[in-house]
Design a protein around this nucleic acid. Structure first.
Lengths: 199, 199
DNA sequence: ACCTGAACACCGTTCAAGT
DNA sequence: ACCTGAACACCGTTCAAGT
């Protein structure tokens, strides 16, 4: 883990984050303790505090780091098919880093997938005919749907007898199609349920 | 906290769960430590282990206990309006117990809101014309949407300048309307995006 | 200026010992 | 049979002390 084999490698923020991400990817977020991280970096625990304020900031940096490598779907024939492809990619990407959704869900961190990606999604939605406000709401709805499906991967998993393990990805894609068709339908949302009970 | 003021109250599972829920409701899940719980019950930490296996089981019991008091919407004119009312109720109920979503998201627990409530929702969806399999998928989609919106309450909350705190409930209701209209539209989901790329 | 070991105040869990 | 205090192996964080 030393960057200079001969001498001592100075600790850097990016080096800390890279090692932390490796631990979290390999063994989950609970394995990422400051003691473990320091040991992996060949230093003492208290040395980390010279570069990060506390564990919360480490997790924030970890999420920011991941957000930079978020996937974005290539151009596509229709907005609908681009959106479906893009949010399937997002699911697959986050499914490979389960710690990310857990960290977001812990409530300490605020994250929404960087800056560029959600803006691009909103642009496609506006191009598809949505008002700007509705496009932002739709981005948040899609993001929260992904998050819910990633975090609740084991629900309804009938323990007694426990036969049918659910295909989580297929489940998500079904929900994604439903949400997208609701978002993109002419006239937009807010017509499903009651008449005027929007408070 | 003693049930019999004169003598010593015997510890019971339900008593433990009730006190645990009170702590979690009042101060959040992090405040619910076994030491704190034992102290609140007027006993020692190790005494708890005579009634629960470990902290994981305590959280499971806590979720089961909450699931029993889940709300269910009264009968309504149309399936669509019942579903909207019901899932708005579910959001409001869970928003009052933020620890529940966090516990589910931690991955240790499996929960889906009890037994009766999701079955009733599925019945309404079938009555609205969905196939049985699709009704189950729709229940999971709606549940995961609630979960995502509850857990990700602070996202996109622009820190720099930080003006526009999002109205989370309104955000959720917008997403709910979109998802419901996608679920209930004739022909059902799976037609939004590409042609046949359902893998 | 930068790093460190030892300590502090926690945590869940266990276990020999009490009644 | 039921409960308990003390201990164990952790955690994040702090701080006086080193170079």
């Amino acid at each position: 883990m030393r960057s200079e084999p001969g001498g001592r490698s100075r600790l850097t923020k990016s080096g800390i984050v890279a090692t932390a991400r490796a631990i979290a990817d390999a063994e989950g977020i609970d394995a990422l303790t400051l003691r473990r991280l320091a040991h992996e970096l060949g230093t003492g625990q208290s040395s980390l505090y010279r570069h990060i304020a506390d564990r919360r900031e480490l997790l924030q940096l970890l999420c920011d780091d991941l957000a930079e490598s978020f996937p974005i779907a290539p151009p596509c024939s229709t907005p609908a098919s681009w959106l479906r492809t893009h949010w399937a990619l997002t699911y697959d990407f986050l499914a490979e880093h389960p710690w990310a959704a857990q960290v977001i869900a812990s409530g300490e961190i605020l994250a929404g997938g960087g800056e560029d990606v959600p803006r691009r999604v909103a642009e496609v939605l506006v191009a598809a005919g949505l008002a700007v406000d509705d496009a932002d709401r739709a981005v948040r709805a899609l993001w929260n749907l992904v998050l819910g499906h990633l975090l609740n991967a084991h629900p309804f998993g009938h323990l007694d007898g426990g036969p049918p393990l659910i295909d989580c990805r297929a489940d998500y894609l079904w929900a994604l199609d439903a949400l997208l068709s609701g978002i993109l339908r002419p006239g937009c949302a807010a017509a499903a349920g009651g008449e005027g009970q929007h408070g």
